[in-house]
Computed example of a mutant assay.
Amino acid sequence: MPLRLEIKRKLAQRSERVKSVDLHPNEPWILTSLYSGTVCIWDYQSQAITKSFEVTELPVRSAKFVARKQWVVAGADDMYIRVYNYNTMDKVKVFEAHTDYIRCVAVHPTLPYILSSCDDMLIKLWDWEKSWYCTQIFEGHSHYVMQVTINPKDTNTFASASLDRTIKNEYLDLGSPDPNFTLDAHLKGVNCVDYFTGGDKPYLITGLDDHTAKVWDYQTKTCVQTLEGHTSSPESDKHVLKMVLYVYGIQLLID
């Protein structure tokens, strides 16, 4: 006869690992999303938390400000995107967006668009002026899509990073569903991607599972620089996040 045990108490320890950060364009605020399922707004002048949202019990891997709407938009491992008014802390919208962990959300700087990327290998475009209707699905990656970011110099294009070792540069234009180009010269999975904003150079920077970062000229599609020195993958290297936060005089528990 099997032994039957009665559970008297369950104990759990939630991690406070930081999964994403974002800066408010006007206020002295840093937005952090945590593995514990919480989203926090830090005032880097007072060095204190000013707002905290208990989003879900699962990790929130990406959260962004939508300053012109006074929103925070967050994507989590429960496959939902949630939108909050950061002044009233009211929920604006909650909807199931994907069929696996949501890795990243990106906000269009002028149009009412949110991009989301996921472990289901899809990127989706959401229009909040159309009741958050999904107006476009971008396929083509063959592994988790770790990050999407909109080109600040051409806001009709965006880049996506995937563990399939590629970067894709794609059009937001609904009439152009195919990738503009694909960078497939990476030897390991790509965890993160961003555009260079400090000048006129047409550069992308990628963070790889081989502990390096690469700078790409996306016009010539060539690697112009490889940066070494990390001891773990850039997606998980805590020292990068610590450096950013210490610039603003904030110390977070991210171990």
Rank of each mutant, 00 (worst) to 15 (best):
M1I: 11
L3R: 06
S15N: 12
R17K: 13
D22G: 10
L23E: 14
P25C: 10
P28V: 10
T32A: 13
T32D: 00
T32Q: 00
T32S: 15
L34G: 00
L34W: 01
L34V: 03
L34Q: 12
Y35A: 11
Y35R: 14
S36F: 10
I41L: 11
D43Y: 07
D43W: 07
Y44Q: 07
Q45F: 07
Q47V: 05
I49P: 01
K51H: 15
S52E: 15
E54K: 14
V60R: 02
V60A: 05
R61S: 03
S62T: 14
A63T: 01
V66K: 05
K69I: 04
Q70A: 09
W71C: 04
G75V: 01
G75F: 04
M79N: 13
Y80G: 01
I81S: 01
R82H: 08
Y84K: 06
N85A: 09
N87M: 07
N87I: 08
N87E: 12
T88L: 09
M89S: 15
M89Y: 03
K91G: 05
K91M: 14
F95P: 04
H98V: 09
Y101L: 13
Y101P: 04
R103E: 10
R103I: 00
C104D: 14
C104K: 03
A106N: 07
V107N: 07
V107T: 10
Y113N: 08
Y113L: 15
S116G: 07
S117M: 07
D119L: 08
W128R: 05
E129C: 03
K130S: 14
K130I: 02
Y133N: 10
C134L: 06
Q147M: 13
I150K: 02
P152C: 09
D154F: 07
D154M: 10
A161P: 11
R165M: 12
R165E: 11
T166P: 06
K168D: 01
K168V: 00
Y171G: 04
L172K: 02
D173A: 12
L174I: 10
P177I: 10
P179S: 13
T182S: 13
D184Y: 03
K188S: 15
V190F: 05
D194H: 07
Y195A: 06
F196K: 00
D200Q: 12
D200Y: 05
D200F: 03
K201F: 01
K201N: 14
L204D: 02
T206G: 09
T206V: 03
T206W: 08
G207R: 04
L208F: 04
H211G: 01
K214A: 12
K214W: 04
V215Y: 02
W216N: 00
W216G: 00
Y218K: 11
Q219H: 10
T222R: 13
C223T: 06
V224F: 04
E228L: 02
G229D: 11
S232K: 07
S232L: 03
D237S: 11
K238G: 01
K242S: 13
M243E: 12
G249A: 07
D255P: 10
D255H: 10
